[in-house]
Design a protein around this nucleic acid. Structure first.
Length: 195
DNA sequence: CACATGATCGCCT
DNA sequence: GGCGATCATGTGG
């Protein structure tokens, strides 16, 4: 039985959520009926009004960032570089516009073998996510997160975020988190935890 | 309305 | 390591 993440999970400190999301299963029930999912292996925290790399820096409010001001637990999906979508998990209570970018998955259900999910754009393509899913509740029927695998601190490494060279002071902030352990060695537990 | 740019990727050298 | 693709979004006039 799938155990969805409780609403309170998403209201926590954003860095905590970014770390805790590693090992969770991200599931998209595609409009065509396929159930597609993967285990989250890489994330980045975006710390809202005080983070120059965040879309809501300085409490910027536009049509695009509107969803970031909602209570945690929603999907923030935007289109970038003319060809890619990126999925974020909105965190914190309403009016604290923070989020976690999902950067990497370990394919689990419904995905063609060999499909690449090692990048924010690639994983959105693999799961069939686009702006059509922007604003969806991450505890809903179409898109949700559930418990799966737990990684220890030793298995997680942090580093500076990618693609934010314009973000001045924040360039070096170690807000990127990824699973250090080769997932091959964890495969057994992934398999047994599945289904 | 016009323009500049980006939370990326894949291909090139 | 560099660069082009390709267009939604934000900003300014």
């Amino acid at each position: 039985m799938e155990k969805r993440l409780p609403k309170e999970f998403f209201l926590q400190d954003t860095i905590e959520v970014a770390v805790q999301l590693l090992g969770k299963e991200l599931v998209h029930v595609h409009p065509d009926g396929r159930r597609l999912s993967g285990i989250i292996t890489e994330t980045e925290a975006y710390l809202g009004a005080d983070d120059p790399a965040c879309h809501s820096f300085g409490y910027r409010r536009t049509d695009r960032t509107r969803i970031l001001y909602q209570p945690g637990g929603l999907a923030y999906i935007y289109f970038i570089y003319g060809m890619h979508h990126c999925l974020n998990v909105v965190t914190r209570p309403a009016e604290e516009p923070e989020a976690v970018l999902i950067r990497g998955l370990h394919p689990l259900r419904g995905l063609d073998p060999g499909i690449k999910t090692d990048g924010p754009g690639k994983l959105c393509r693999a799961l069939g996510l686009s702006r059509d899913q922007n604003g969806l509740d991450l505890r809903g029927d179409q898109l949700y997160l559930s418990e799966n695998t737990t990684f220890s601190d030793e298995e997680i490494e942090s580093s500076p975020r990618v693609g934010i060279d314009y973000a001045e002071d924040a360039i070096e902030w170690p807000l990127r988190f990824r699973v250090r352990t080769s997932l091959a060695t964890k495969n057994q537990s992934l398999k047994s935890a599945k289904r």
